[in-house]
Amino acid sequence: MHSELRLAIMSLLAGVDEADFTYLKEQTGATSGNLSVQIDKLSEAGYISVEKGFRGKMPRTVCRITPQGTEAFRAYVKALRKYIAAGK
């Protein structure tokens, strides 16, 4: 979760029920290739689930944060706050 893009994906998914690839691309400003790689990494870690399907004739990839991902994200934010507070 340390990379900027992975963290942006996790933060985006933490705030919504689900988001499709186009939305994530739009919001992060990432390239399709890079976004795909980072989504795969997060999926492999079990932090997000990826569902590939169609909406009409258009292919559609929908991403959701998993309970494990939510837990990891919370722990990460908590650790960040603790680290920043300790530094002050």
């Binding site: 340390h2 990379s3 900027e4 893009l5 963290l7 942006a8 933060s11 992060t28 990432a30 890079n34 980072q38 934010v77 960040l80 706050r81 680290y83 920043i84 530094g87």
Partner: peptide, 14 residues
């Protein structure tokens, strides 16, 4: 986009 960030940067991004 793939670089690691400082704690403050991470929190701001979130």
């Amino acid at each position: 986009q793939n670089r690691e960030m400082t704690a403050q940067e991470s929190l701001s991004l979130i």
